[in-house]
Amino acid sequence: MAGPGAYAAVWEPGRQNVTRYRLTPRGWPEGRRLRLAILSDLHVGSLHVPLSRVSELVAATNALAPDLTLLLGDFVASRARIASDPSLADLATELARLQARDGVFAVLGNHDWWHDEPTQQLRQGPTQVGLALERVGIPVLENKAVRLDTAGGPLWLAGLGDQIAFLSRGRRPRGIDDLAGTMAQITDDEAPVIMMAHEPDVFARMPDRVTLTLSGHTHGGQVRFLGWAPIVPSRYGNRYAYGHVREAGRDLVVSGGIGTSQLPIRFGIPPEIVLIELG
């Protein structure tokens, strides 16, 4: 077992793939093309993701020449911060080097909330991660939708608040997500809607008005055998664990992410930057 164990703990978590999807979701305008670069679950400060690796990820993402770069949350390690962790200001400064024709946008993940003690005590934001990103000019879409004029024409980009933001003793974590309130900000029936939601579970109740949902959180289960993961942090198990999912004509892409959570291993699901070519 030493061989597979070493592979899962040392080699695979340090890899860096680009996973590509070419999609034409329902409602996408004919002939319009848009390139989306996705970074999720960096977990900076974890064993395999020092700040220097963020620099490498930024360079690799920029080399894809995306129209939009979307950051899907869990920027920090899945534990309480320690003195050796990179500062949030330094992390945000590195991410500010991301370049995309139509902008760089973010949502927050559960660990950005769970390991922010003031937000857990007050049961409200803003989070330290969110403030750091906003200070360097990266908008954080928290239950917010914005209309953009992009290379692929006008579209709505929406970001859902985290669905398990607040820890609760003996009960399921409580979220700050407001799907109805976010959708109410969309004021036309024509421009396609892309929804950023850290956890994919919301896809089960996503309105048909949403053209494409983008999520992370699961790490693809972090250990996968022939496309199946024994443990997935989702009430739906493997249904939304990883990759492109199409249900009832609606599309979801779940990134396997970059870092690790809980156990510092990956097996069968290497870290990835996702590139989605729409149209």
Rank of each mutant, 00 (worst) to 15 (best):
G170E: 00
T93S: 15
Q99T: 15
A100C: 13
R174Q: 14
F75T: 02
L148Q: 09
W156G: 00
V104T: 15
T93R: 15
G137Q: 11
D177P: 00
S84Y: 08
G73C: 05
Q185W: 01
Q121F: 09
D149Y: 05
I138L: 08
G159K: 01
A83L: 14
A132W: 08
P154N: 02
L148C: 06
R79M: 12
T119F: 03
T182S: 01
G175H: 01
D85E: 12
F105M: 09
D188V: 03
D90Q: 14
G153A: 02
L88D: 14
A80N: 14
R123V: 07
T150V: 09
L70N: 00
R97K: 15
E94G: 01
L88A: 09
L122D: 10
G159C: 01
G103V: 05
E134L: 04
S78Y: 13
D177H: 08
M183H: 07
Q120I: 09
G109C: 12
G175S: 00
E142G: 03
G137T: 11
S87D: 06
P154L: 01
L98C: 13
G159W: 04
T127L: 10
V129T: 14
G73H: 10
Q121G: 04
E142V: 12
E94T: 09
D85P: 05
D189K: 12
E142C: 10
R79N: 08
N143G: 00
G153L: 00
F166M: 11
L95W: 12
R169E: 13
E94H: 14
L148M: 11
Q99Y: 07
L122V: 04
A165W: 01
V129I: 12
T150P: 02
A180F: 02
G137V: 09
A83G: 09
F166P: 07
Q121R: 14
L72W: 11
D67G: 01
D102T: 07
I176D: 07
T69C: 15
V107D: 02
